[in-house]
Design a protein around this nucleic acid. Structure first.
Lengths: 230, 230
DNA sequence: GATAGAATGTATATTTTTTAACATTTGGAG
DNA sequence: CTCCAAATGTTAAAAAATATACATTCTATC
C-alpha cells in the first residue's frame, strides 16, 4: 500500500482482506486511466464498487465556486463507492486518477451474486461501514470543536501513522488547506505555531516529525475527555 | 414518530421496519430513564444496540471545555449505537433522556443470535449504515463549504421536511447553535439575514416558513452542482 | 393578569480567518 | 549549472465569528 498517498478523512482508507480481494477482482472489470482523468463524478448513480488496483484515486468535491475540497487519496487495494451499492445513493465525490491508474469496477449485479456465494462479505462490509461512519462522525466533531492548529496536528499525525515509521510526511500546505477547508495562509500560521511548540518542522513539500510520540501525545491531549455529566 | 424532536445530522434518524422492530424488541431489555438522566457516555465500550421505545434521547458531545455539541434527538423507534456492535467501536456520543424515556437495549451477544435467525437483518443494516455514512459525509461537506446562513437554512429546511407539512419548525437559536457548532449570536445574525430575504420568519421558540418551496429551492441553489472537471 | 424563567435582541471589543497581493525559497529538468 | 515552476513566507486590510454583557420580549402557570 502506497502509504505516502493516504490522507484525508481518517478511516476512509482500508485495504481488503486477501480472500475477499481475490473474489472481488475475479468479478471486476478493469479500467485504465491516465493522470488527472475523471474516474467518477459526484452525482453519478450507477451502483458499483470501485477498487484501486494500481496508481491512486484522488477523492474530493468541487464547490459551486469551482473550489476543490479534497477528502482522501486512495491507493492500491483501497476501495470506495460502497454506498452506491448498499444504499442506492449517488456518488458523493468526484474521483480523479493520480498518475497512471488501474481501477477494478464491480457492478451491483455482480456484487449481489458474490454476496450469495461468499457468506462473510456482508459481515465484513458491515464492520467496514461502521468504521467509516465512526471516522466520519469523529471528523465532524473535530471540525466543529478543535482549534485549527489541533486539526492540522491531528491530520499530520494521522498521515504519519498511515505512513509507517518514516519521520517525514509528504504533504503540501495547499493539500492541507483542501482537506481542512481553510486557506493556505491559515495553514501556514498553524504550522508556524506547531513548529514553535516543537511538534513539527516545516520543510519544502513535507513536514518533519522530530518526535512522533510527542506529537501523538499532544494530539490526544487536545481531544475530548470521555464525558460524564452535562 | 415524534417529528418535532428530530433535528441534527440528517439521516441519523431512521425508524425500524415493523418485522425487524418486533424481533429486536423481543430480544431487548427495557430500561427506564427520567428527564436528563445519562443513558450512555461517550467512550462506553459495551457493544449494544439502543432503541428509543418512548420519550426521546438527546445525542451529543461534551467538549474539553464543558461545552455541548448537539448531534440529534432520537424519538420512538429510532436507534443508535450500531457501530459498537458492527465495528467494535466505543460510543461516539453522550446520550441523555429528554423527558421520561424507555430504552430497549440489545447486547451484541443477543443481536448476533438474531442475525442467524433473521436473514434480512444484515442487508437492512448494510443499507442503513450506507445511508448514515452518506449523510455524515454530506454534513462534513456542508460544514466546510457553506456559509453559515446556508447551513442554518439547510438545517431548518431539513427539520421542516422531517416534520411533515407544518409551516412551523420548533427550534431555539440555542439548539441551532449546538447543532452547527457556532455561537447563538452568529445564529441570530444568520436568521436575521434569512428573514430579510423572506425565506423564514423568526418567532419565539420557533421558525415560520412562509413558502417551503421557496426555502427548499434556495437551499438547493446553495449546494454544489454535480461537477465535471477539476 | 402578574410574574418568573426562557428565549431572543443587541452592542462592543477581540480574535480568527479570509482575501489579495507580492516576495522568496526550493528542487528538479534540461 | 541554470532556469523555471512549485511551494512557501509574509503582509495588510476586510470580513466573520467569538466572548461578554446586558436589555427586552414572550409565554406558561400560579
Amino acid at each position: 500500500m502506497s502509504g505516502q498517498l493516504d490522507y484525508g478523512l481518517p478511516g476512509l482508507q482500508e485495504t481488503l482482506p486477501t480472500t475477499l480481494r481475490e473474489a472481488l477482482y475475479d468479478a471486476a472489470v478493469s479500467l485504465n486511466y491516465s493522470d488527472g482523468q475523471l474516474i467518477q463524478a459526484r452525482g453519478d448513480t450507477d451502483p458499483s464498487l470501485t477498487i484501486v488496483k494500481s496508481g491512486a484515486a484522488r477523492l474530493g468535491q468541487i464547490g459551486i465556486d469551482g473550489s476543490y475540497a479534497g477528502m482522501a487519496v486512495m491507493g492500491p487495494d483501497q476501495f470506495f463507492g460502497e454506498f452506491t451499492i448498499f444504499g442506492g445513493l449517488p456518488r458523493e465525490f468526484d474521483a480523479f486518477a493520480v498518475g497512471p491508474t488501474v481501477i477494478a469496477k464491480i457492478s451491483k449485479t455482480r456484487f449481489d451474486r458474490l454476496l450469495d456465494k461468499h457468506k462473510g462479505i456482508r459481515s465484513y462490509f458491515l464492520a467496514f461501514l461502521a468504521q467509516r461512519l465512526h471516522a466520519a462522525l469523529t471528523f465532524v466533531d473535530d471540525l466543529r470543536r478543535l482549534p485549527l492548529n489541533a486539526q492540522v496536528a491531528k491530520t499530520i499525525n494521522m498521515m504519519h501513522q498511515a505512513d509507517g515509521k518514516s519521520p517525514t510526511v509528504k504533504v503540501t500546505h495547499e493539500e492541507l488547506s483542501e482537506i481542512l477547508g481553510v486557506t493556505r495562509v491559515s495553514i501556514n500560521k498553524a504550522l508556524r505555531q506547531l513548529e514553535k511548540s516543537g511538534l513539527i518542522e516545516r520543510a519544502y513539500g513535507r513536514i518533519e516529525i522530530p518526535s512522533p510520540a510527542k506529537l501523538d501525545h499532544w494530539v490526544q491531549s487536545q481531544s475530548r475527555p470521555n464525558a460524564a455529566e452535562i
